[in-house]
């Protein structure tokens, strides 16, 4: 096809537009990544060329005054436990919602869905009061419970979408052959909905890892405080030490980038619970 000069100009403009998008999307991340390797003086300049240092990462762990090691530990334990408890429960519930008929089913489904729309501040108050009574404030267990309440409803809805799209006949064949319901779910349905389970796992993990509000209010010490909230401690006399904050941010962000990229095909579908694919 021969291009007219006008079409050529449009093609060039389009490429410039795309490059601008690329810049808008990556610049804030790039800038933090760069700052993480700057020394204190360079961090407060817009230099792109400088002598890189790993000092900022070291300072975060030397215990004087910052000690992020226990905070990373808390983040990992809370997120992993939330996934290990939340995802299997959500898969079982999604299976039950999708495959059985029972009284109150629709009401329960509406409640599952509406749980995702509750403002976190409304959910927080009752739990804050109960946790105070049961001594669960500032514990990882408390935080895990909170994270389960937000992740399970979302995961149920997500996985249910995947199960709904499978024909029921596949399972019936297994049941006729003498499998129990649990065996059918485990050996027939689960392998077929694996993409959905992986997406639910990633969303649950990322959601828990990045969660801020609950952790901000429920934790008061390094006993349970995750990385995300630990960042607030990076505050010195002359303001936020951006080079250290950037270093800590890299530690938080990079694992999430890797997880997000592994499910990139399903990212959009996951976010809208399968409505837009």
């Amino acid at each position: 096809m021969i291009k007219t000069p006008m079409q050529r100009i449009f093609a060039v403009l389009r490429v410039i537009g795309v490059l601008f998008i690329l810049y808008f999307v990556t610049f804030p991340i790039f800038w933090m990544a760069l700052t993480a390797f700057k020394n204190n003086r360079d961090a407060y300049s817009t230099k792109i060329f400088f002598e890189p240092t790993l000092n900022n990462f070291r300072i975060l762990f030397d215990g004087n005054p910052y000690d992020f090691a226990p905070l990373i530990m808390n983040s990992v334990i809370v997120s992993v436990t939330t996934v290990l408890i939340g995802v299997p429960l959500a898969v079982m519930a999604a299976y039950a919602f999708s495959r059985y008929k029972f009284r109150g089913q629709n009401l329960l489904l509406v409640l599952v869905l509406s749980a995702q729309f509750l403002p976190a501040t409304v959910v927080l108050l009752p739990y804050f009061i109960q946790f105070r009574n049961f001594g669960l404030l500032d514990t990882r267990t408390g935080l895990i419970i909170m994270h389960l309440t937000i992740s399970i409803p979302f995961a149920i809805w997500l996985v249910k979408g995947f199960i709904d799209s499978l024909p029921e006949e596949i399972e019936q064949a297994a049941l006729v052959d003498g499998c129990t319901e649990f065996q059918t779910l485990r050996y027939v349905t689960l392998p077929l909905i694996m993409p959905g389970v992986i997406v639910a796992t990633v969303f649950t993990f990322v959601g828990s890892w990045n969660e801020f509000l609950f952790a901000f209010i429920m934790t008061t010490s390094n006993r349970a405080r995750p990385m995300m909230v630990g960042l607030l401690a990076l505050n010195e006399i002359d303001g936020i030490p951006w080079e250290k904050l950037s270093a800590a941010s890299m530690i938080i962000m990079i694992p999430m980038f890797i997880l997000a990229l592994t499910i990139r095909k399903y990212f959009v579908a996951g976010l809208t619970m399968g409505a837009v694919k």
Partner: peptide, 10 residues
């Protein structure tokens, strides 16, 4: 999809 993986607080 990277910006979305950056937590809102960050």
């Amino acid at each position: 999809i990277l910006p979305f993986a950056v937590s809102p607080a960050l």
